[in-house]
Computed example of a mutant assay.
Amino acid sequence: MSNITTNNILATQNLSIGYDKGKKREKTIARDLTLKLHAGEFVCLLGANGSGKSTLMRTIAKVQPALAGKILLDGAPIHQFKPSHIAQKLSLVLTDRVTIGNLSVYTLVSLGRVPYTGWLGKLTNRDKEMVDWALHETETTQFAHRNIDQLSDGERQKVMIARALAQDTSLILLDEPTAHLDLPNRVMIFKLLRKLAKQTHKAILLTTHELDLALQAADSIWLMGKKSVQGLCNIATGTPEDLVLNGVFEKAFQKDGFYFDKHTGAFKINESARKKIRLLGKGIQAFWTQRALEREGYAVVDTNNDNVACEVVLLGKQPTGYGWQINDQVYDSVAQLLKEIAFF
């Protein structure tokens, strides 16, 4: 495994993506894309539905042709590679549920070696070493001799990632790898992919709708923005923090009904505040109290003025739990607090 993390595993030059509609008619989704993906980098491709994420991913993987520009893999144009050569440079994990019948986990992961052995090729010692390594890295060794249909959705997705690892490519592309998973498994997959990028120095790019997880785990984000008047999508790239601080992230997902709060890194329901509540206190109790109040439509402020309906004092952890106080009355739950505030 290479320790160089500055190499461009993937680069695009003035890339235009879209569809060839025939008779010299094209539908362009985005143009002039200049992107780079380095060894050891974990990148999340984000964007609203219809922004062009899947089209960009399919174009990079040469599943569909580019309309213009170049895609470089390890510095060489991808159009010069034969399919068998591409399969030794990039691996692709799709979003479809894994519904392979009686195939064992070991056999499925072994299919990642097909670009080197051919469909009828026998696994060499090197191939077996790569399969065992991929199973170990994804913590799926214990499933090796079980049938794939005996595994949970989360376990199956880990096995598909193991197959991509066994393929031993410098670039791994994943299209919505957590689409069918519950929250614990979604978190597990993100942690696994970030770990693999750092430990194996492979470049990993995935499309996802898991905005919160992407902000926490990604080294960089490729953000497909809203369509322009011309019907084209722009793409912004950078660290998650820079995209949040410069307002690009907020603008890309701005819709009626909710908004991205850059102070908390979370999406919030956008309701017209009925009343202002002054909240006195800090820490975890303040965070969750504010969330509850804002959900009910109140505006939470930390300064006093004539427009404040009431003042809530956070008493912190008490012998029987957390405490909240309004005037002389003390409450021992958020539920009780919300009922009382409704009368102000």
Rank of each mutant, 00 (worst) to 15 (best):
G297R: 09
K282S: 14
Y259C: 06
A309Y: 12
I4W: 13
P240C: 09
V301N: 10
G154C: 10
T169W: 01
I86K: 11
K255P: 05
T178C: 09
I235M: 12
D256S: 13
A197M: 11
W288R: 00
G47E: 08
I29R: 02
E210G: 06
L280W: 04
Q167M: 00
R291G: 08
Q325F: 06
D96Q: 15
D182T: 14
G283C: 07
G231I: 09
D175P: 00
Y322D: 10
N7W: 10
V301M: 13
I78K: 04
T95W: 06
E137Y: 13
G281R: 03
T95F: 05
V98H: 11
K70S: 15
A11P: 02
A76D: 10
E176T: 02
G257I: 07
G40D: 00
D168C: 01
Q64E: 12
L314D: 06
A48H: 10
F260C: 08
H180W: 12
R31Y: 14
L35M: 11
L45N: 02
N7I: 08
K268M: 09
A39I: 03
S110R: 05
L174Q: 06
L120S: 05
L123A: 14
H38W: 13
L92I: 14
A87W: 12
K251F: 01
K27T: 12
R186F: 09
A166D: 10
L196C: 03
R274Y: 04
L103T: 14
R126H: 14
D261S: 14
R146H: 15
K282Q: 13
A335D: 11
S272E: 15
G154Q: 08
S170Q: 09
R97E: 15
Q336G: 01
K262N: 10
T117L: 11
H85D: 15
L111I: 03
H209Y: 07
S84R: 12
A164R: 06
G316M: 12
K251Y: 09
A273W: 08
L135T: 04
V43G: 00
K202W: 02
N304E: 15
I86A: 12
E176S: 00
H263F: 10
H201C: 08
N14H: 14
Q150C: 07
K89G: 02
F267M: 11
K195R: 15
I148F: 06
A162L: 05
I269R: 04
L165Y: 01
K202R: 09
L90R: 12
V229A: 11
D175E: 02
G18H: 05
L151R: 04
C233G: 03
T99P: 00
A218C: 00
S333F: 02
T303L: 07
L181G: 05
S51Y: 02
L171E: 02
N234Y: 13
N304R: 14
D32P: 06
R186H: 06
L56C: 10
T169M: 01
T138G: 08
A286R: 05
V312H: 05
V93P: 07
T12E: 06
Q80M: 03
A286Y: 04
A266F: 09
M160C: 15
Y298A: 01
S54G: 09
S51T: 05
A39H: 01
L123Q: 12
I4K: 15
K226T: 04
S272Y: 07
I277P: 00
